[in-house]
Simulated assay, not measured.
Amino acid sequence: MTKFRTKFQKALFSMFLISTIIVGGMAVPSIVKAAPIKIMPVGDSCTEGMGDPDMGSYRTELYNLYKNAGLDFDFVGSNQRGPSSLPDRDNEGHSGWTIPQVASNIDNWLNTQNPDVVFLWIGGNDIFQTGKINPTGLSNLIDQIFKNKPNVKIFVSDYYPNPDIVLPYNEAIPGVVQEKANAGKAVYFVKLSDMGYVKSTDTSSDGLHLNIAGYKKAAQVWYDSTISILRGSTNTPVPPTPTASKIVKGDVDGDGSVTSIDFGYIRKYLLGLISTFPSANGIKAADINDDGGVNSLDFAGVRLILLGK
């Protein structure tokens, strides 16, 4: 019986070594891919895309800029507007909406879409409908977003300088943003008023909204104002920290989870390439079947753990 068990262990060990060789001669570490950064563009007709025949707004060009930069992102929202050439048309741009209207819906959007980042371009219609700027409403809306999603990043833009009635609002927005930033909030200003707007070439036929050329200029400002911050964002899951007294079977590197990295360490140990494991409890963690040693059965046991069996 002992002889048979030894032959079985050798055969089993050889089988797993062969499977390892097939994928390159060593166990391939598991790679935890960061989730795409979920970006929710929020605003009025400028975000939805009025003035652009395809209703792509700045989002069309910004999508291309982010992709060319290698950013892993996902536009989110309940509204889908844009050209067929735009793979991701999700947004929360709503033509004619004011800050109070956005505030009435933002909690539902946040809960449904769960964004990591919010692009906020709103307040123009408040001026058109009431004749007054609404920086207080903007401030309250930012607070409302952070109350719902404390870890979100918010980018707040002003408007290109058309019509002139938006200019006082443009002057007020940076102060609102700075107040939140001074309070430790992750809120940033996007100065679209510096996009190099030329009324004769960047305005649509309605005389108010941007055309495609204008939206491309706006997209460049959004990109320049956000890319370095977004590149520093990460959604990679953090493995749980194990307690000092608990030994996770198979977790020979002591990071609190069993991955193919642990599988690779056990393989190297059985081949005599290493004589110990990274964690203090590595030997005990590697002894899956608690028979007092680390052998091919433990090697097979870790593989079964990784396969969810």
Rank of each mutant, 00 (worst) to 15 (best):
Phe146Glu: 13
Asn68Thr: 06
Val198Lys: 15
Thr112Pro: 00
Pro168Phe: 10
Ser78Tyr: 10
Tyr160Ile: 00
Pro168Leu: 11
Ser139His: 14
Trp109Val: 06
Ile173His: 07
Asp206Trp: 05
Phe75Val: 03
Asn114Ala: 14
Leu192Val: 07
Ser157Ala: 10
Tyr66Asp: 04
Asp126Asn: 15
Thr98Ala: 06
Asn170Asp: 08
Lys180Met: 06
Asn134Pro: 04
Gly207Val: 12
Leu192Phe: 02
Val76Gly: 05
Gln80Arg: 15
Ile122Ala: 05
Ser193Cys: 09
Asp202Ile: 01
Thr130Asn: 08
Leu167Ala: 01
Thr201Leu: 05
Asn140Cys: 02
Trp109Glu: 12
Lys185Ser: 02
Gly70Thr: 04
Gln101Asn: 12
Ser157Trp: 08
Thr130Cys: 06
Tyr197Ile: 04
Met195Asn: 06
Trp121Asn: 02
Ser85Gly: 05
Gly184Trp: 00
His94Trp: 03
Lys132Val: 07
Ser204Asn: 11
Val177Asp: 04
Asp194Val: 03
Asn105Ser: 13
Thr201Pro: 01
Asp88Gln: 14
Tyr197Glu: 05
Tyr66Ala: 01
Phe189His: 10
Lys199Gln: 10
Asn105Arg: 15
Asp72Ala: 09
Val152Asp: 05
Leu192Gln: 10
Leu192Trp: 08
Gln101His: 11
Gln101Lys: 15
Glu171Gly: 03
Ser78Pro: 03
Ser205Pro: 00
Asn108Phe: 02
Thr98Ser: 07
Tyr169Asp: 00
Trp109Tyr: 13
Ile142Ala: 08
Gly93Val: 01
Gly131Ile: 10
Pro83Trp: 11
Gln129Val: 12
Tyr188Met: 01
Asp143Pro: 00
Asn108Cys: 01
Pro100Asn: 13
Asp72Tyr: 04
Asn105Met: 14
Ile122Met: 04
Val118Ala: 05
Leu120His: 10
Ser104Tyr: 01
Lys180Ile: 08
Gln129Asn: 14
Pro87Ile: 07
Leu210Lys: 11
Asp158Gln: 11
Lys147Thr: 11
Lys191Pro: 08
Val198Ala: 07
Asn151Cys: 07
Val187Thr: 12
Pro161Gln: 06
Asp90Trp: 02
Asp74Trp: 01
Lys147Gln: 13
Val198Tyr: 00
Phe155Asp: 02
Asn105Glu: 13
Lys132Leu: 11
Ala172Leu: 09
Trp121Met: 11
Thr136Gly: 08
Asn111Gly: 12
Tyr159Cys: 06
Lys191Ser: 03
Asp206Phe: 08
Lys132Ala: 10
Val118Pro: 11
Ile133Pro: 02
Gly175Asn: 13
Ile133Tyr: 03
Asp143Tyr: 03
Asn125Ala: 07
Asn151Gln: 14
Ile122Thr: 07
Ala69Pro: 00
Asp126Met: 12
Pro161Thr: 06
Lys185Pro: 04
Asn91Lys: 13
Asn79His: 09
Pro174Asn: 11
Phe119Cys: 09
Leu110Cys: 09
Arg81Val: 00
Tyr66Lys: 14
Gln101Ile: 11
Asn162Met: 13
Val76Pro: 02
Leu120Met: 14
Leu71Asn: 09
Val76Glu: 10
Gly124His: 11
Lys67Tyr: 06
Val176Met: 06
Trp121His: 12
Ser157Arg: 03
Gly77Asp: 12
Pro174Glu: 02
Gly184Phe: 02
Gly82Asn: 08
Asn91Thr: 03
Asn79Lys: 15
Leu65Gly: 00
Val166Gly: 03
Ile145Thr: 14
Gln80Asp: 05
Ser205Glu: 07
